[in-house]
Design a protein around this nucleic acid. Structure first.
Length: 479
RNA sequence: UCCUCAGUAGCUCAGCUGGUUAGAGCACCUGACUGUUAAUCAGGGGGUCGCUGGUUCGAGCCCAGCCUGAGGAGCCA
């Protein structure tokens, strides 16, 4: 039999059978006669209680049993005499595999601030909160693959190193093997990338979308799921320099198919987590409620975490155009009372305060905005007949803002080429992208979803650095 | 990058208008306790008050610069 995890041990019927417990000590307490050790192995949020009769187990075996130590316990699985758990392990032998000096181990059996735990990111998988978050992150990732597979989408691996710097999605990390102190120069005194590894400038990808489009125009329905890099100097609770993005792309999908897909997708994944991570969600919900006790009434969430997730699953997303959204904002109280920091008018890029008003105050549910002015959106989006707007769609969520950004793509070769020239994107370097519109072009659509923002929404974690194991942010790449 | 706030024991924090030897809870160590649930009770050890400079008879507290962190904004997913 495979070694049972604590999750499996807790589910067994206690019949005084011999069991082995492997895990990390969370806490130890007790009296002269008996000691209680709570052990966790990460398989579940629940701990198993090991009971030690001090008349039978030599003191020597217990002296290194401190919070943080790893242990192997041999014992019998019995019904618990205490009220906090159904089963427990009556210890017969305890071995400390790796001691943890209690003077130096950073975590204690008490509540720590997220800032402190974040500074100990190398050990934080051992905490209750982060165990729950990372188990949920796994289930989210699994449900994403499951959803797309069931919908007939193929998982494609887009490149991480790209030569294209035309995607316009922000500052990029240069990839080079040149000596930074002494790079080869051209006659003009510029760095000569002809001598670099790829014989041209290359960067880490900021999006797999363009490659996903190439694959979709052949495989039909595809999605990417991989790391993405942005060298922006962003210091917020919603930005990372390295994050994971999911980008489906589907041939013969128009903007409405795209919206339907996005809504189905989000609901499917949340439903999966509700079904499979109930214990972790319950803990995170309680944690959030405790945290919010110290906040003002108006800053508290309108509903508890699980209720919020059910609400998203059960209600249709509100769909409206950018133009309709601007009208609502122009009619709104904050606009009339001059309370928006950024004034509202048709053509502006919506600010966080505007999106929050629409999602949190006006509709009180997820919102999909479409048909944005072309000036504030990317070159590849399909142009509407009005000549002013493009078939973009942004899905806005309460608390975190834009969680999905997508569009129907411009499939018309001439329109796409003209737009690229207008905004100054090299049609020569992007010949391969334009080629898909020269040969057998079809309407197609797709979107990008930031995995971490999604996990933030599902777990209720306020800071994006707490939903990725080892966050990369400006000035921060330890661990 | 900009704005705001914060930095006191391993952790969470208190420290009055500048005044003598800087405090509490938790953790740790010692002891007590027949089954605990972040156990409880008694005692003990533990501090470069972020760093540098300044004002002052005297600075944890006031001033300047810097460092680090958090929240908000921009950029976006």
């Amino acid at each position: 039999m495979a070694k049972p995890t604590i999750k499996e041990l807790l589910a067994m019927a206690p019949q005084e059978q011999s069991v082995e417990v492997l895990g990390w000590v969370r806490n130890r307490r007790g009296s002269k006669q008996v000691a209680f050790i709570t052990v966790n192995d990460g398989s579940t949020i629940h701990n198993i209680q090991v009971v030690v009769d001090l008349n039978q187990i030599p003191e020597e075996q217990l002296k290194d049993v401190h919070t943080g130590a790893s242990v192997r316990v041999l014992g019998k699985l019995v019904p618990s005499q205490g009220s906090g758990q159904a089963v427990e392990v009556q210890a017969q032998e305890i071995e400390v595999l790796g001691p943890a000096d209690p003077e130096k181990y950073p975590f204690q059996p008490k509540k720590h601030s997220l800032e402190f735990v974040r500074e100990n990111a190398h050990l934080r998988a051992r905490t209750t909160t982060f165990g729950a978050v990372f188990r949920i992150r796994h289930h989210v990732s699994y449900a994403i693959h499951k959803f797309f597979h069931e919908e007939g989408f193929f998982y494609v691996h887009s490149p991480i190193i790209t030569a294209s710097d035309a995607e316009g999605a922000g500052a990029m990390f240069r990839v080079t093997t040149l000596d930074p102190k002494n790079p080869p120069l051209t006659e003009d005194g510029e760095v000569n990338f002809k001598e670099d590894f790829f014989e041209r400038p290359t960067n880490l990808t900021v999006s797999g979308q363009l490659e996903a489009e190439l694959m979709a125009l052949g495989l039909g329905r595809v999605y990417t799921f991989g790391p993405t890099f942005r060298a922006e100097n962003s210091n917020t609770t919603r930005h990372l320099a390295e994050f994971w993005m999911i980008e489906p792309e589907a041939a013969f999908y128009d903007i409405h198919d795209n919206m339907d897909l996005a809504e189905r997708f989000v609901k499917y994944v949340i439903r999966h987590v509700l079904e499979h991570c109930a214990d972790d969600l319950a803990f995170l919900e309680k944690r959030l409620l405790d945290e919010e006790k110290s906040k003002k009434q108006e800053e508290r969430s309108p509903m508890p975490l699980i209720e919020k997730l059910n609400f998203v699953v059960e209600n249709a997303f509100e769909r409206l155009t950018y133009t309709e959204a601007i009208d609502i904002l122009l009619q709104s109280k904050p606009h009339k009372k001059n309370q928006f920091q950024f004034p509202v008018s048709w053509g502006i890029d919506l600010q966080a305060e505007h999106e929050r008003y629409l999602v949190e105050k006006h509709f009180k549910k997820p919102v999909i905005l479409t048909d944005y002015p072309k000036e504030i959106k990317a070159f590849y989006m399909k142009q509407n007949d009005d000549g002013k707007t493009v078939r973009a769609m942004d899905v806005l969520f309460p608390g975190i803002g834009e969680i999905i950004g997508g569009s129907q793509r411009e499939e018309d070769y001439d329109k796409l080429k003209r737009r690229m020239e207008e905004v100054g994107i090299s049609t020569e370097e992007m010949w391969w992208y334009l080629d898909t519109r020269r040969f057998g072009s079809v309407p197609h659509s797709g979107f990008g979803l930031g995995l971490e923002r999604f996990v933030q929404f599902i777990t209720g974690m306020g800071n994006i650095r707490d939903v990725i194991p080892f966050p990369r942010t400006p000035g921060n790449a330890e661990f």
